[in-house]
């Protein structure tokens, strides 16, 4: 995936469409947007940077997982099999991007009340396990783009095959000097950012 920081306006629509698509419970933000400020007044730059699982080619989370719950799909997407996860949270300590969330107990957005939406959606989430972005794998299987890509209101996100040098994402990375976060760690993330 390529995220164009020149286009991104930091609206957090991606964070919430992720929530809607995946029905993630309170406090579980598979996707978030941070603000990053540089410079001194009046020469200041503030950039909004969406963050989510980087789907590293060399995922440290998978390496440390004691049960094999964290695994990599053949297409490179890093996923968690909730049935295998014991909730040791080792992966959370291993992820350099702080992109994993532990659901300690079942919780609803309105204390003491479960909305019909939550009734329908929270079956997908069990307590006591770790979860994270899976690039909307169920959507991909239906031939759709991840929800954050499909909904981005400044069209800052492009989804595609990094291995294909002719793909849109590969071209964008080439033409606009796309970069990864914390490349020094050797994780080789699948999310590239285009400079603002």
């Amino acid at each position: 995936m390529v995220i164009d920081l020149k286009k991104c306006i930091g609206c957090t629509g991606c964070a919430l469409v992720c929530k809607a698509e995946n029905a993630t419970p309170p406090g579980i933000l598979w996707l978030r947007v941070v603000k990053h400020e540089t410079g001194k007044y009046p020469q200041v730059r503030r950039v909004s940077v969406p963050l989510q699982c980087m789907h590293c080619a060399e995922p440290p989370c998978m390496e440390v997982c004691p049960t094999g719950a964290t695994f990599q799909h053949p297409n490179g997407i890093v996923d968690i099999d909730a049935e295998l996860c014991v909730g040791c949270r080792y992966c959370m300590m291993a992820c350099p991007y702080d992109q994993r969330f532990f659901l300690s107990a079942e919780r609803t957005y309105f204390p003491g009340h479960t909305t019909p939406f939550e009734q329908a959606g929270y079956q997908r989430h069990q307590a006591g396990v770790v979860s994270k972005c899976n690039f909307c794998t169920p959507r991909l299987q239906r031939g759709l783009e991840p929800a954050c890509v499909a909904n981005c209101m400044s069209r800052a996100r492009t989804f595609g095959d990094l291995d294909d040098s002719n793909s849109e994402v590969s071209k964008l990375i080439r033409d606009r000097a796309g970069y990864q976060l914390h490349p020094e760690l050797g994780t080789n993330p699948s999310i590239y950012y285009l400079p603002p």
């Binding site: 004691p66 049960t67 006591g128």
Partner: peptide
């Protein structure tokens, strides 16, 4: 988080 599955933790000696 899931104590009942603790035994699964023995399955990744190679890396974890």
């Amino acid at each position: 988080g899931r104590p009942e599955r603790f035994w699964r933790m023995a399955t990744r000696m190679g890396s974890s």
